[in-house]
């Protein structure tokens, strides 16, 4: 009951999607499409569950117990409720308070947080890019060429060279050939891993997602 029914549900849900790919019959296509629609609703419910969990931790644990940094929990909840209430009351379209908060709070905070990484990535580069061996040198050279090739300075520095040796052209070549080769290999390896894991899940061999007990 606790493990068998979930395993049966997994098998049926996975098998229908698999069959849909190999059997082009409207009956199978409709069933698979309906199940995909259902998944969207279940995933949305898990997002609501996540919000419930945030409330439980911050509103019912951190704030009442006055744990370290509890005032920040109020900030977190205020931001969350501000977005949810404005969206529920006035909608989410252009010109609504929800859209105003999105454009002037979320976008600014998101962009600044990602831009902050520029500093940390630079210090990481300093540590990672020491020329220790041939492979590290290749890494360093590729990174430097791509960085220089993406700014006007790169094109200025190599203006006098033949077109094929100018940094923007070399950068384009690195992105389209060696970079593509490396990532194609990684992508194919990862895809085979996903397929193997998918089969293990559908056949009930892999059960870690069901948790303990």
């Amino acid at each position: 009951m606790r493990r068998e029914i979930p395993l049966i549900i997994t098998f049926v849900a996975g098998f229908v999607q698999l069959v849909d790919f190999f059997v082009p019959h409207p009956l199978v296509a409709n069933a698979a499409s309906e199940l995909r629609q259902w998944s969207v609703i279940v995933i949305a419910a898990s997002i609501v569950l996540g919000i419930g969990n945030l409330l439980r931790i911050h509103l019912f644990e951190r704030i009442p117990r006055r744990t370290a940094g509890w005032p920040y929990s109020i900030v977190l909840l205020a931001g969350m409720f501000a977005m949810m209430i404005t969206g529920l009351v006035w909608g989410v379209g252009e010109g609504t308070p929800f859209n105003y908060l999105f454009r002037h709070l979320k976008v600014h905070l998101d962009m600044t947080m990602f831009a902050l990484l520029a500093f940390f990535i630079a210090s990481a580069a300093y540590r990672a890019f020491r020329v220790r061996n041939w492979e590290a040198t290749l890494l360093l050279l590729a990174a430097v060429i791509v960085m220089l090739g993406r700014v006007p300075l790169g094109s200025l520095l190599t203006r006098g060279l033949p077109t094929a040796l100018q940094l923007p052209v070399v950068t384009e070549w690195i992105m389209n050939v060696p970079n593509m080769i490396g990532f194609r290999g990684i992508m194919m390896g990862a895809a085979m891993g996903v397929m193997a894991m998918g089969l293990r899940i559908i056949l009930g061999i892999e059960r870690a997602y069901l948790g303990g007990e």
Binding site: L76, G79, A82, M83
Partner: peptide, 23 residues
Amino acid sequence: FAEHLLVGVSAGYWALIYWNANI
């Protein structure tokens, strides 16, 4: 302060988007 505000605003934003579109 800014970090917690970002987490809260993002959680509220995505919850509402999922709620409206899917639920």
